[in-house]
Design a protein around this nucleic acid. Structure first.
Lengths: 182, 182
DNA sequence: GTGACTTATCTTGAAATCAAGATAAAATGC
DNA sequence: GCATTTTATCTTGATTTCAAGATAAGTCAC
């Protein structure tokens, strides 16, 4: 296994702080670095459809719920792991572009229903196959058994994080209305 | 393996778009979700030392280079994978707090040297052990062999991403002065 | 050496995000 | 039924970030 940027960081710490254990650090460091580096690879495709990453995310979340492609703002910001204020801003922008509309809910006057328009549906259905192909191309460089081991390990790690977030009262409050549900 | 939020998303796509392959999607989806969920766990410790996540990152990058704890702004924004403009703003803030100073370089008048002050060194040395312990506590929920498999797979994935970023001319330009080096 | 390129840093203006709180509707407890 | 609490959404102001470009110093070709 050739050494990478994270190994060099660990070696620096080892020199400066010989008693420090770097095991947890390197794993989480690689996780962070991977997520920073892969985002622009996705953006490159989104921009071909005049979409930003977050625009794609919102449209895709609505799209995959099936007809009538409609969710409440709360369901959306929970699924997308952002705050309610962020979602308000996103919805305003998307409404301005004509890709969604916000209608009031018949049974609960506090709720709104966010719904894909024809135009929004067309846009996401156009971009989706290209996005999926892009992700497959990116991961093709990884041997299939490695991808499977990565996926299984990430599933367990994600379970740990979701457990912490649902059980920690203090953290739960700090996250305010960003609920992380689906 | 119990199903998680990402499995539910894949199932929704399967229902709406039966021909769509979701393999790459679920792996990268778990990666993204993990990195969003673990950040606040780190912030919880940083805030105990009156630090934000990015303040910790800058101070730690300087600290681990060893005496005299000094780097150029370019070395810093490369290591931290942010743009030069972001780094200028960060350094201004940190200088205001007295944790770093910016001195001009003796051999190249274009360069500055960013150096940890006594106060900045004390702060990072105080926070570092707590941060490492925190990361270990978070990962303790993961069996050690799983962590090792995760780490090995992430290393390979990171190699793929770093390869793409160093070899793709178009992407390289899009990333402007965010060079991703160490 | 001089003009063109390159490198290093900073500035500006815009975009996205968050925390905190405002508003209003619904549910709950007596 | 009325007061209290909870829920759903939006607003506000501040923070962080980026892209694009400005500035200035070094380097290179000749």
């Amino acid at each position: 296994m050739p050494s990478d940027a994270v190994d060099l960081i660990a070696a620096q710490w080892q020199r400066e702080k010989p008693d420090l254990s770097t095991d947890a650090m390197v794993t989480l460091g690689r996780l962070k670095r991977c997520s920073v580096l892969y985002q622009p690879l996705l953006d490159a495709v989104f921009s071909q459809f005049d979409l930003t990453s977050w625009e794609f995310d919102v449209l895709a979340t609505l799209r995959r719920t099936g007809e009538p492609y409609s969710l409440t703002p709360t369901a959306l910001f929970s699924a997308l792991m952002v705050t309610s204020g962020t979602m308000t801003h996103r919805l305003k922008t998307l409404e301005g572009k004509g890709w969604i509309i916000r209608e009031s809910s018949p049974d609960d006057a506090r709720q709104k229903r966010v719904r894909l328009t024809e135009s929004g549906l067309a846009r996401i259905d156009e971009a989706l196959p290209a996005h999926v192909t892009n992700m497959e191309t990116i991961l093709k460089a990884l041997p299939e058994d490695t991808r499977l081991r990565l996926d299984e390990a990430l599933r367990q790690l994600l379970a740990v994080f979701e457990d912490i977030h649902s059980n920690a009262p203090i953290l739960g409050n700090q996250l305010s209305d960003r609920t992380h549900g689906l």
